[in-house]
Measured scan of single mutants.
Amino acid sequence: TGYYDVLGVKPDASDNELKKAYRKMALKFHPDKNPDGAEQFKQISQAYEVLSDEKKRQIYDQ
């Protein structure tokens, strides 16, 4: 599964769309709200870390 799929956004998503999707998913799977969501929360955080950084995103998109 790709990072875009993890966040539920298209590859041409804007920074604002990425942030909005990340916040929505992070709230849904945060371990405090969803004890079984810890692994998914890590994936969401990693996806956002890469896609929100312009240089990392360019490398990922290659």
Rank of each mutant, 00 (worst) to 15 (best):
T1C: 15
R23I: 15
L27E: 15
Q40R: 13
R57L: 03
E17W: 01
E17T: 09
A47N: 01
G8Q: 06
F41Y: 11
K20S: 12
H30I: 05
Y48H: 03
S52H: 06
V50N: 05
Q43E: 11
A13T: 04
L7S: 00
I59W: 11
Y48C: 05
V6N: 00
Q40V: 09
L51E: 02
E49G: 05
T1L: 15
D32C: 14
K42Y: 10
P31E: 06
E39R: 06
D61E: 05
D32H: 06
K28Y: 11
D12K: 04
Y48V: 01
K33L: 15
F29N: 02
Q43C: 13
I44L: 07
K55C: 14
D5G: 10
A13Y: 04
V9F: 00
Q62P: 06
E17Q: 08
R23F: 13
I44P: 01
F41D: 01
S45K: 15
E39T: 07
D15M: 15
S14C: 10
P35I: 06
Q46M: 13
K24Q: 10
Y60A: 05
Q46D: 13
A21F: 00
F41M: 11
E49I: 10
I44D: 02
E49M: 07
I44M: 00
Q46S: 06
S14V: 01
V9A: 04
K19M: 08
M25L: 15
D61N: 06
M25H: 06
S14M: 03
Q40C: 14
E54F: 14
A21M: 02
A26P: 01
N16R: 14
F29E: 05
Y60P: 04
Y4D: 03
L7K: 00
K42R: 13
Y48A: 02
K24W: 05
E39A: 09
L51T: 04
D61W: 04
Q58W: 12
Q46Y: 10
L18Y: 01
G2W: 15
E54S: 15
P31T: 09
D32E: 09
L51A: 02
T1G: 12
A13L: 01
P35Q: 06
D5A: 12
L18F: 00
Q62S: 11
A26S: 08
S45W: 13
K20N: 13
D5L: 08
Y4P: 02
E39P: 05
F29Y: 14
D5V: 07
D15H: 14
G37P: 01
Y60I: 04
Y48P: 02
A26H: 15
A47C: 03
L51M: 01
V9M: 02
S14N: 10
A13M: 00
P35K: 08
V6C: 09
D36P: 01
V50H: 07
D32F: 06
Y22N: 05
K10W: 06
T1Y: 15
V9W: 01
K28R: 09
D61I: 03
P35A: 07
G8Y: 01
G37R: 06
